[in-house]
Design a protein around this nucleic acid. Structure first.
Lengths: 168, 168
DNA sequence: ATAAACTTTCAATAAATATTGAAAGTTCGA
DNA sequence: TCGAACTTTCAATATTTATTGAAAGTTTAT
């Protein structure tokens, strides 16, 4: 597979992966494009390369900036804004992980915690089973949540490395 | 929070979580409903409870059966099909994890592997950077993939437990 | 063999989500 | 202060994804 084909396939595949995991395709593709770019890219260059509109690029870029996985990069003598990707895989993964955990997992964790601590639940079969399942889920999500936080704190994936060695 | 409210909130929240992670809301809600049900439910009961159509329930149920996270359960003297959820949190998590890893992550892992092993890449800045990033990503995804497989093989989350203890 | 009970299918429709593009807003050099 | 260069906004539109519901298919008891 030659470079132009490989590049297109990579960007496409990355976009698809995003879609399947709830990340807008344009956003995922822009990250992919910036990841493999050897130099900062402007909005116009991104529009041109991915064949998407200015509005789309602008909004997607803002999202990626919010997540902290791309940066603005000024180029001397040019009024345009340029962008570069965070290239350290571990760093941007952790950032995405953190954002998604906070926005999407935490509400579930919070609800489970609240229900699990509820004393008001009665003794009907429905309520007994409900209570039991919520408690299980609560225990489970707490564990996952704790482990995720620890993983996210460790830098460069050292914790992941340790785990892999430990359990190989 | 009383049972009826807690139940509705749980099902809603679970549906939302699904949506955000690429799982159809109806599918997620049916799993939630079956998880907390003390007895098997029929298609009609699910339709009634979640206010969704027969077609939707049928297709969603099939998906959940495919994933292996719910089961059919015959009830003596009744021609209807009834369904129960796999109630062991770890078991169904692993099953979902496996299915999604295979269907969604593996294609990416495969593409990265293929590109990373490509000898055809030239020496232009574009191709050098591309090559470098793909290699990084490839190494990273391989590690994640291996760890996931190990996690998925261990039963009842014993590996997760060990990890938590080890790094707390 | 029939018909009632039940399940599956899938074209049509609805709902959710993403994208566009042009107008409004901003910045900055002359 | 003007206007060109650039960025942002957002209503309109397009696309994707989910849902419906009625017809077709299947199973089972008699």
């Amino acid at each position: 597979m030659k470079y132009p084909e490989a590049k297109v396939k990579f960007i496409e595949t990355w976009g698809n992966l995003g879609s399947q995991w709830g990340v807008n395709k344009s956003i995922a593709q822009i990250q992919a494009l910036l990841l493999i770019a050897p130099a900062p890219l402007s909005t116009d260059e991104i529009m041109e390369e991915l064949k998407i509109s200015r509005g789309n690029v602008n909004m997607s870029i803002r999202q990626l900036l919010d997540w902290g996985i791309i940066y603005k990069k000024a180029i001397a003598g040019d009024r345009k804004e340029y962008f570069i990707a965070e290239k350290n895989v571990w760093k941007w993964s952790v950032k995405i992980g953190n954002v998604r955990k906070q926005r999407e997992l935490n509400p579930v964790v919070d609800l489970l915690k609240e229900i699990a601590s509820e004393k008001d639940l009665g003794k009907s079969p429905e309520e007994v089973e409900f209570s039991k399942q919520i408690k299980d889920l609560n225990a489970f999500t707490q564990q996952i949540s704790k482990l995720a936080d620890k993983l996210f704190i460790s830098q460069q994936g050292e914790l992941l490395m340790k785990m892999l060695k430990m359990f190989s």
